Computed example of a mutant assay.
Amino acid sequence: MRVAAVLTAAGSGSRLGHELPKALVDLGGATVVVRAARGLLASGVVDLLVVTVPAEHQGAFAAALTAGELEPDVPVTLVVGGASRQASVAAGLRELPADVDVVLVHDAARCLTPPAMVARVVAAVRAGHRAVVPTVAVTDTLVEVGPDGVRTVDRTTLRAVQTPQGFDRALLDRAHRAAADRAHDERQAATDDASLCAALGEPVATVDGADEAFKITTARDLAVARTLVKEDA
């Protein structure tokens, strides 16, 4: 039985101010998608990798991953993504062979995720948790805004969710089938896979996340990531 990772890289780079997709942006000599793939494979727990990409940039992604010096023994497949993240993950799931029993779903934009965090997620699934998410504590003061003003929310019970999220393959397949009618409308589609499993009544377990697993969304995020890469060089 094997572990597969679905790496979502079909998003645009519009909020970064780039014409290229975000995952093809250079980050210290390697593209974002290559750094994300390296992190997954360096964990030592991923047996195959499926990368979801925009149709119009398949060639560029293939070239980047081929030149990325990834683990030679781990098969890498490119799949055209869908109209939403949910649809893209579903497309990736359809490419997985029958002997995969654990699936990781990871955002390429979280390309500095430590390999040890990836291994923690898989270990938790192997221990019997069918849906697992890494989380970090919320440090900002949070308020709920209503017509009568604001109310401070108790942050001690709140966590920010990261990726990769890990799943029993049968559960994740079932969760995507149940929500398939929402997948092609970005306004209704799920923004993560754990929420699809929770909608079926499945408990979602947590493991420790990592500060480095932040999501690159804005130009400031990219600048922070480039600083961290330079410091590690």
Score class of each variant (00 low, 15 high):
1 M>E: 12
3 V>W: 05
5 A>Y: 04
5 A>G: 03
8 T>Q: 14
8 T>W: 01
11 G>P: 01
11 G>L: 11
12 S>P: 05
13 G>D: 09
14 S>Q: 10
14 S>L: 10
15 R>L: 12
16 L>W: 11
17 G>N: 13
22 K>L: 15
25 V>C: 05
27 L>T: 02
28 G>W: 11
28 G>C: 03
30 A>Y: 05
33 V>H: 06
33 V>G: 02
36 A>S: 10
37 A>N: 10
41 L>M: 12
49 L>H: 07
50 V>R: 14
51 V>T: 05
53 V>R: 07
53 V>E: 09
55 A>C: 09
57 H>W: 14
57 H>D: 06
58 Q>M: 15
59 G>S: 11
60 A>R: 15
65 L>G: 08
67 A>H: 14
67 A>V: 01
68 G>C: 10
70 L>E: 03
71 E>A: 15
71 E>G: 10
71 E>W: 09
71 E>C: 12
72 P>N: 07
72 P>E: 06
73 D>R: 15
76 V>M: 08
76 V>A: 07
78 L>K: 15
81 G>V: 05
83 A>P: 00
84 S>D: 12
84 S>I: 10
87 A>N: 10
89 V>Q: 10
90 A>R: 15
90 A>P: 02
91 A>K: 07
94 R>Q: 14
94 R>Y: 01
98 A>T: 09
99 D>T: 11
101 D>H: 12
101 D>G: 11
102 V>K: 02
103 V>A: 10
107 D>L: 08
107 D>E: 14
108 A>Y: 04
108 A>V: 08
110 R>S: 15
111 C>E: 03
112 L>H: 05
113 T>K: 02
116 A>C: 03
118 V>G: 04
123 A>V: 02
124 A>T: 03
127 A>G: 03
128 G>Y: 12
130 R>D: 00
132 V>R: 01
132 V>N: 01
142 L>Y: 06
142 L>K: 05
144 E>S: 15
145 V>I: 15
145 V>E: 14
146 G>I: 04
147 P>K: 08
147 P>W: 07
148 D>G: 10
149 G>D: 06
149 G>S: 04
150 V>F: 14
152 T>F: 04
155 R>H: 09
159 R>D: 05
165 Q>D: 03
165 Q>P: 01
166 G>E: 01
166 G>V: 01
166 G>R: 06
170 A>Y: 01
171 L>D: 03
173 D>V: 12
175 A>H: 10
175 A>F: 03
176 H>E: 06
179 A>S: 14
181 D>C: 02
184 H>I: 00
187 R>H: 12
188 Q>P: 00
189 A>K: 12
189 A>M: 05
189 A>G: 02
191 T>Q: 12
193 D>V: 03
197 C>W: 00
197 C>D: 00
198 A>P: 01
199 A>L: 05
207 V>T: 07
210 A>C: 11
211 D>P: 05
212 E>V: 08
213 A>I: 11
213 A>E: 07
214 F>S: 02
217 T>K: 15
218 T>G: 01
219 A>T: 14
220 R>Y: 13
221 D>T: 01
223 A>W: 00
223 A>E: 12
224 V>P: 01
224 V>E: 13
225 A>Q: 02
226 R>A: 12
228 L>F: 04
232 D>C: 03
232 D>R: 15
232 D>S: 13
